[in-house]
Amino acid sequence: MSDEIIRTIQLTKRFRGKTAVRDVSLSVTRGSVYAFLGPNGAGKSTTIRMLLGLLRPDAGSVALFGAPLSTDRYTSLHRTGSLVENPSVYPHLTAGENLDIARRILGAPPADIDRVLAVVGLGYARGKLVKTFSLGMRQRLGLAQALIGKRELLILDEPTNGLDPAGITEMRQLIRRLPAEFGITVFLSSHLLGEVEQVATHVGILSQGQMVFQGTASDVSALRTPRLRIRASRVDQAHALLIAQGWAADVSAGDLLMTDVAAAATVNRVLVEAGHDVELLTLESATLEDVFLGLTHAEVA
């Protein structure tokens, strides 16, 4: 059995002549939590809709579980649960009735409804009308719907959208449990970097419709080069001094940033001897956000 659960080859989608996704090649392996990152409008949702057969690619192909989606959609979607953007529910039905719709189509046993409600912590709300649910409860119900039946892959598009911090934590904990407890591979899109950093084993970064990075979480860590942050008086003069001494340094948010971390002590001495007050000198790692912004060329406000 192939360990590659999702495979796309040069996936491309255009809307009215404008290319939303260009040549995206993804590879998601079994048991991973794959974080699909990108700023808003990067093409994440379009890619996800193509993975689910909701949009037809203009070029390229999608294979789920080793079989082309174009010819094997029915079997592939039987094994794939999804939550695309906001949860789609029927507010005039109860939580149990909403789940019963997916259950009947999947041919899953009735007991599955209680099972998935328990997984997402909504067991108490089975008989409640969904129109009385909070957004967090709806999101969990959407996840329950995606878990009905024997799913091996979950595709979640911005699952924490609109949730409060407590809801985000809950959702994150749920996602973290899925591969370990249920053997489910998770493909998760988000623009909230800190959140996926804690759950992802693999990361793909999309920018302006194109993949700019794909690798494991440790590959991302390797990109997070350490640097030296220095807060000194008269920062422009201090910057000029460091440049004159042959160091590479930048000014960011009033601080000096240097990648030559071994020079910390020397830099401190040079600055002090030149009459600068050094208020802060610290070693820091580039955040995932820095990596992300660097790769996507997003502008820092």
Partner: peptide, 18 residues
Amino acid sequence: GLEHADKNWKNLLALPSP
């Protein structure tokens, strides 16, 4: 309208039914 209202098409048509 049951499907249009809450943008349910994406959910319904991602289920494994032709």
